[in-house]
Amino acid sequence: MSEITAERTIPVRIPTPLRGLTGNQDLVSARGSTIGEILKDLQSQFPGIAERLFDQTGNLRRFVAVYVNGEDIRFLQDQKTPVGPEDEVSIVPAVAGG
């Protein structure tokens, strides 16, 4: 089963504002062992998604939040946060609540 390591995919929840780029899918799969790699893979699958997520300096935009199993990556290791096949990644607009 060693090929799983190379081929593993991780489920990523896509918020409404980005579904125009994912063919209206709210759940997609991406490859990578860190959040940074996952997001990069999303861009290769769905061109244009990166410019929505990142500002000109390459940082995640102020109002974009990324979660691994419900935990904000800012409380983990930001884009270096490791992810495995059993994890679930969510991209969520940060402007809500209060």
Binding site: R13, P15, T16, D26, A65, Y67, G70, D72, S90, V92, P93, V95, A96, G97, G98
Partner: peptide, 27 residues
């Protein structure tokens, strides 16, 4: 969990159910 997790969950629910979330899609 704390409020922020409630909030995150509601953002996800609002993306799935066609409800009026007053402080999410109706914010």
């Amino acid at each position: 969990g704390p409020y922020d997790k409630v909030n995150r969950l509601c953002s996800e629910i609002a993306g799935k159910y066609r409800w009026a979330f007053v402080n999410v899609n109706l914010r």
